[in-house]
Design a protein around this nucleic acid. Structure first.
Lengths: 146, 146
DNA sequence: CATGCTGTAATGTCAATAATTACATCCGAT
DNA sequence: ATCGGATGTAATTATTGACATTACAGCATG
């Protein structure tokens, strides 16, 4: 399965906020039009980011702001905020191997460590990459458009 | 989203084949009972592994065999065989950012490289891990059960 | 207090996972 | 040659998550 587009949408939103702050009022409608999804989708993702402590949202008047500088927000932060797998496991282990089979009752313990290695490597890479890099790259591309 | 349990089931099956070959006839029913899923689920996964060239299946009489030694079959081989995302992308990019927005028309190019970095790191780790390691670990656990 | 925005529930569509039934097909053993 | 045990695969169903959309209550500020 693929990682939900909520992830790339969240990165897109952070980028918009940084690029357009000051020039435009950042509302869910404004963002929805840039991302090209329904405003409610934006608002729901914003709730997840807020719950994770990554942004603050002003009600009534509108407006969204990151709670920390962008080089302190990593892909992993966003991934965790937005990907709703309860136990946080990347791999879905078949629930119910037969305990009467020697393989069935040992495979979980024998395999789990390896699965975690893969997950850890991936998550560490996500912790290395910050929003700042993406925002900078986007701004460069914008200014070199002319 | 999580990686389908087809992955761990496939690893479980390979382990059963290696542990029980000679002592039992390896049929989809036999495997289904160890994994504790429906035999048809096993057969479908076996088809995917066969299509990927990882196993050979004997019709009529039954029987499954890996086409290569287990230390030449990696997690990545199995992952690719069993995880059916057409384009092979780990991240699902929102399809349709607004090209009239400077961010919308540049975010894909600015972000894609980073996403690929994450995917590559993960896939490289999966290429490092072979079935042999899991089968050995399982056998050790089985023999130390007494 | 009117306006514009957020928060969120309700509903619908679509795709993927997984279970299950059913049956055609294959092939070795008797 | 055929019987019995297996595989190959289609069809159906239930469940779940993604995502879209409508609707409306609640909030904050001019």
């Amino acid at each position: 399965m693929q990682i939900s587009s909520r992830f790339t949408i969240a990165v897109h939103v952070f980028t918009c906020i940084d690029v357009f702050k000051g020039d435009y009022k950042i509302t869910s409608d404004f963002l929805a039009s840039s991302v090209n999804v329904n405003p409610v989708v934006i608002r729901r993702i914003m709730q997840q980011l807020k719950t994770a402590g990554l942004i603050e949202v002003r009600r009534g008047t509108g407006g969204i702001e990151p709670t920390r500088p962008l080089d302190e927000i990593t892909f992993f932060d966003i991934y965790k905020a937005v990907e709703c797998v309860d136990n946080g496991e990347l791999f879905h282990f078949h629930e119910d191997p037969n305990p009467q089979c020697p393989v069935g009752r040992n495979i979980h313990a024998a395999l789990n460590g390896r699965l975690n290695e893969v997950q850890e490597v991936m998550e560490n890479e996500m912790k290395r990459i910050t929003l700042r890099e993406v925002v900078c790259a986007t701004k460069e591309r914008i200014s070199s458009e002319n």
